[in-house]
Design a protein around this nucleic acid. Structure first.
Lengths: 235, 235
DNA sequence: TTATAATGTCTTTATTTTAGACAATAAAAT
DNA sequence: ATTTTATTGTCTAAAATAAAGACATTATAA
């Protein structure tokens, strides 16, 4: 395992948006009872940290071009999860290779500093895949995230704070939507992220005045009302 | 040296403010020709990363309570400075201990991921000290910083971007001023940080409306004009 | 043809920001 | 002692921005 930088890890908070709900990608650790975690991994010796994060995300989402922000390093001295690491080290699936030879897992039994990234993806574009340490990978509503290993719950909280701070200022929200969407879709996303309602008339004016949307054809859904325009994010 | 986490370092951009100028703390590396750097160091195995940053800063500033923000991790695969590391490893001061025994410095000859912190200090409170790897530690005007080792110049640039983004929003500017100051002092600081002039009347109103300043006595300087009030930052 | 629910946009009102004005004042100059 | 000068503190007016209200439009069901 010494291809990796020692005692340094990456954990990714992958935000998705569907059915007026913010979701995050949660993995279940393979062969360990009831242990959930953020998609994470380690940094190869000859790999940029950002590239490592993209590799780790690609393994789970199959996506190549992801909006990524490295927002904080987590490195408390007591940043350990003894219970979890113990289980991993004692588990035959983990500590034994295909040839039945014991693998030295002591490198895991140290304090790790973890680089926290958050990613924004269009949930429709994601093809979920399991990496070799995942028993499952699933979208979980942000308010239904179970207890996670290490400080992963705290990492999510801090990612959400960062997301809210950057959301409007940098117009990163479009990364959570399909490439084509209605003004209502966008407004509902903003309302979910900020957990507050916006006035429809003023929201539309504010967004259109930014001149970052291209107006496309109308969207006829069969609903008994005026059909809204579709928009695409430009530049 | 294996008290430290391998391949992980900390670099601090220490901002100070004096004579209407933003300054940063720059160290000269001991016994290496013309090599300048940010105050930096490594993380002890049993040390929080934030505590490590405070230790590294205290070694140079003698300060205990510093405004600190860990703003980004720098970890490109090519994040190396071969020329500098070579000089260190070949230098007798570095590679030989007091008893004349060779020290193994190979741990330095790897790619390091560095956690970037920036600090804001009242330059008047700083008592500069050299750590054991510093030939000197000095305040340098932000626009006169020489070429530094590794990507330290880039770290300063990015710290400045972060500083500007947080400066107003989080009212962190007071950390750069003495505990007692005039409105003019504060305005000049803002003008330096944002490199733009502010209208005196409106600046004063905006700041006072924040209700974070306590008005103290007047400051009589002997100048032939109305004496300004002094203020203290509260809460 | 009418009713309904949502949409797009305009107008009005309220709030905030910016600009202008001026009296107050500390000390030097007269 | 009075005037002058350079700031300072604060008020008011104007401009810009944001929030609230109003209403015609329209896609489909009744």
């Amino acid at each position: 395992m010494n291809n990796y930088i020692d005692q340094l890890s990456i954990d990714c908070v992958v935000f998705g948006y569907q059915s007026k709900t913010l979701k995050v990608l949660i993995t279940k650790i393979i062969n360990i009872d009831n242990c959930y975690a953020l998609p994470g991994g380690f940094i190869l010796q000859n790999e940029d940290i950002d590239i490592a994060a993209r590799r780790i995300l690609n393994e789970r989402t199959s996506l190549d071009h992801i909006y990524l922000d490295q927002f904080k390093a987590f490195g408390k001295n007591n940043r350990r999860d003894q219970r979890f690491i113990q289980q991993v080290m004692e588990n035959q699936i983990w500590n034994t290779n295909q040839s039945g030879i014991k693998i030295d897992l002591n490198w895991l039994d140290k304090r790790f500093v973890s680089l926290g990234y958050y990613a924004l993806v269009d949930i429709e574009n994601v093809v979920l895949r399991k990496s070799e340490i995942d028993e499952s990978v699933d979208w979980v509503d942000l308010d239904k995230v179970p207890q996670l290993i290490f400080d992963h719950n705290e990492i999510i909280s801090e990612a959400l704070v960062e997301l809210r701070e950057k959301f409007d200022k940098k117009l990163i929200g479009f990364n959570l939507l399909p490439s084509i969407f209605t003004m209502r879709d966008l407004q509902e996303l903003y309302e979910v992220v900020y957990d507050t309602p916006f006035a429809r008339n003023n929201f539309q004016k504010k967004i259109l005045d930014l001149n970052v949307l291209e107006r496309l054809e109308k969207k006829y859904t069969g609903a008994a009302n005026k059909a809204p325009y579709l928009y695409r994010f430009i530049k």
